[in-house]
Simulated scan of single mutants.
Amino acid sequence: MITIGAIYRGPELRESRLVQAVRTASEVIGELRDPSYDVGTIPWVNPIFIVQGSLGEPGFRGLIYGKYSKRKKGVVVQIAVFEDDLRAGPEHAVTYGLHGANAMAFEFFRQKGECFPLADAEQMVAKVRQRLGN
């Protein structure tokens, strides 16, 4: 399973194409998530986009692990987004970040002896990509 979050480092980002792409991705994931899903039963990932703006930068490049909740079986993957990451378009940055977060979650849970539902998560990202038109 996937849940999406974002931290925008500047008020000028509020109406940007990137914010819209993240919102759309979050909506698509929400529509696809099984309504009977119970937190703590299946490993899940919370990709959080941290976007450069007038108030600062993410403080790292690429993707890094954030918090992990053993009880809830969830891991956070932080995704740094800089201006130069948007050259291919914000839609590409969002789907690229989600693919990376899925891969990191799969490996994280593999090392813990758990099975992250990578195929299901990747199908969700494919639907996001389709909705974003990239």
Rank of each mutant, 00 (worst) to 15 (best):
M1I: 13
I2C: 00
T3A: 07
T3M: 06
I4T: 11
I4D: 02
G5C: 09
G5N: 11
A6L: 12
Y8S: 06
R9I: 12
R9W: 12
G10M: 06
P11E: 12
P11H: 14
E15H: 14
S16R: 06
L18Q: 10
Q20L: 10
Q20P: 08
V22H: 06
V22D: 03
R23D: 15
R23G: 14
T24K: 09
A25F: 01
A25E: 00
S26M: 09
V28C: 05
V28Y: 04
I29P: 00
I29R: 01
G30N: 13
L32S: 05
L32C: 05
R33T: 15
D34V: 07
D34E: 08
Y37S: 07
Y37V: 08
D38E: 14
D38G: 10
D38Y: 13
V39Y: 07
V39F: 08
T41G: 08
P43F: 02
P43G: 02
P43R: 05
V45D: 00
V45P: 02
V45I: 06
V45T: 04
N46K: 08
P47D: 07
I48N: 02
F49G: 00
V51K: 02
G56L: 06
G56Q: 09
E57F: 10
E57G: 15
P58Q: 09
G59A: 04
G59K: 09
F60A: 02
R61K: 14
L63T: 00
L63D: 00
I64S: 11
Y65Q: 03
Y65T: 00
Y65C: 01
K67W: 10
Y68N: 04
Y68W: 10
S69W: 06
S69C: 09
K70R: 15
K70W: 12
R71G: 09
R71L: 15
K72I: 12
K72L: 14
K73P: 04
V75C: 01
V75D: 01
V75I: 07
V77T: 01
V77I: 03
V77E: 00
Q78R: 14
I79K: 00
A80K: 00
V81Q: 07
F82I: 06
F82A: 12
E83V: 13
D84S: 14
D85W: 02
R87A: 10
R87K: 15
R87E: 12
G89V: 04
P90R: 11
P90K: 09
A93D: 02
A93G: 03
A93W: 01
V94K: 03
V94I: 04
T95R: 03
T95E: 03
Y96R: 14
Y96S: 15
G97N: 00
G97S: 02
G97C: 01
H99L: 10
G100P: 04
A101M: 03
M104G: 06
A105Y: 01
A105Q: 02
F108I: 01
F108H: 03
F109E: 02
F109I: 02
R110I: 10
R110Y: 14
K112H: 06
E114F: 13
C115K: 15
C115G: 09
F116L: 03
P117A: 06
A119R: 07
A119D: 14
D120N: 12
D120Y: 13
A121I: 10
A121Y: 04
E122F: 08
Q123D: 15
V125F: 05
V125Y: 05
A126P: 10
K127D: 04
V128L: 04
V128K: 07
R129G: 12
R129D: 08
R129T: 14
R129H: 10
R131F: 03
R131W: 04
L132K: 07
